[in-house]
Structure formats: C-alpha cells, structure tokens
Amino acid sequence: MRKNIAVAVSLGTLALTLGMVLHLGGLGVLPPRILRNLAQVVAANAYNPWNETLTSYSLNAVAAAIWDYRGIDTIFETAVLFAAVTGVTALFRGTVEKVGLGGRGMLFTLKTSTKIALLLIALVSVSLALHGHLTPGGGFQAGSVFAVIVALSITVFSIEALYNAGLRTKSLMKARLVALALILFIALLPLAASLAINGVAYIAQNQAKEDSAFAMPAAFLNTPLAGSVFIFNVLELVAVAASLSYVLILFAMRKEELEHALKGGGK
C-alpha cells in the first residue's frame, strides 16, 4: 500500500513537472513557427541540384535523413535489429519444423478473399520500397507491411500452409544474413572504389562531395533514383521482412515443434 502511494505521488510529480516545462517553454514555443536550423539544412538539401555537394537527390526528406545524412546510424540500427532477432533464435534453440501435424485454417470463402488481400499487400509493400525516395515510404515501412502477409497467413491458413509454400526458417535466416551483408557492402563500396583509384571517399557516401568525385546513380530515365537511398531501401525491405517473418514463424510454432527447445534446447 505504501509502495502504491509512493508510485502515485512520483507519477503525479512527473506529470506536473513535464506540464510546467511545457508551459514555461522549456522545449521552445510549441508548436514553433520556424523550422530548426538542422532541419532547414536537411529539408533544403534533400533534392537540390543547385547545391551538388550536399544534396542526395531524394524527394523524400525523411528517406534522405535516414539513409544519407544519418546513414551510418541506420546501418547500426539494422545491426541492432539483427542482434535482437538472433537473441530470439537463441531462446528458441532446438526447434524442429514438422510438416504433417495438420492445420485446418479458416473457412474456404475467407481463404479466397485473404489470397486477394495478400496479393494487394505484397504490391503495396514492394511499391513502398521502390518509391521510398519519391513518396512517403521506405525500407522499414515496406518490411513491416510485408511481415503482415506472414501474420495473416498464419492466422487464416495455419503455419502448415507456409511450410508447404516453401517458407522455412532456414531460408529466412539466409535472406536476412545476405541483406545485412549487402547493406554493409554498399556502405563500404565508395571506400573500396576510392582505394582502387587512389582517391578520397567516405563510408556510406551517396553523391559527390567537395573532395571526392564518387557518386551513386542520381537518376534513371529522368526519374530521381537518389543513388544509395534506393538500393538501401530495397535491401532493408528484405532484411526487415525476413527478420520479422522469422520471429513470427518461431512464435507460431506448435507444441510438438517447440518441445525440445523449451526443455532447455541443445543437441
């Protein structure tokens, strides 16, 4: 009881202090009229052919910030995602995929309508990744939309249907490994290219800088391509979709498949 009172009082104090900070303008006048300086630089240079050393040729300023201006940060975030999923793998160590345990799924009409919906979701996901630099969207969004396909399939068709369709945990593991390796490869590509011609380049460099001429393709058939932003978006779609689908399949496994793992795992 005394603990509850202490928690309630501390929560009330937190809310009061935050309210006062907001009221007194500790975060500035909210909402502000002018954009902050750093945000102004990012927004002004996202697509700016008149400032060639700072632009990324991406119409979407958020995608430019994610993969160009803060590119290395996002690459490390991808590594964190990889590590978290590897942690889940370690927890469920020793699972065996068993086909033929049965799994009825839902009604026939529901299955048919879900198939159409799955097709549309896949289209939306791929177009989010491919147009991530032109419209709102990008690799992270596309990946989590793609994982919805696996989530819906598990609920409507049962996990057995996923196995029969050829979606195994091993192949998903390989897909996310390959995607992470390719992301690292694209990030280090400018460095390798500059070593070959004895020039200067930076890790995760997109467009040409003042002292470095290396540049990823900025346009394709008169459509902005934003260089490495486009490539990273597509690779991130694979990495996020494979990671999340992998976790969902591990969680949805049935008792018989998990028995060995939950007894302590190992061989």
Partner: peptide, 23 residues
C-alpha cells in the same frame, strides 16, 4: 508524418497483437 504512420500501422495493429495473442 505519413512515413511514421506507414511504419506504425502494421506494427501496432497487426504484428504486435498477433505476437501477444500467440504468447
């Protein structure tokens, strides 16, 4: 923030509830 809305809607209304229901 349409970008964030696109990332948030599948996570919050499909993936997290499904994982929680399975658990």
């Amino acid at each position: 923030a349409p970008d964030v809305a696109l990332a948030y809607i599948p996570v919050s209304s499909a993936l997290l509830p499904l994982t929680l229901i399975v658990v």
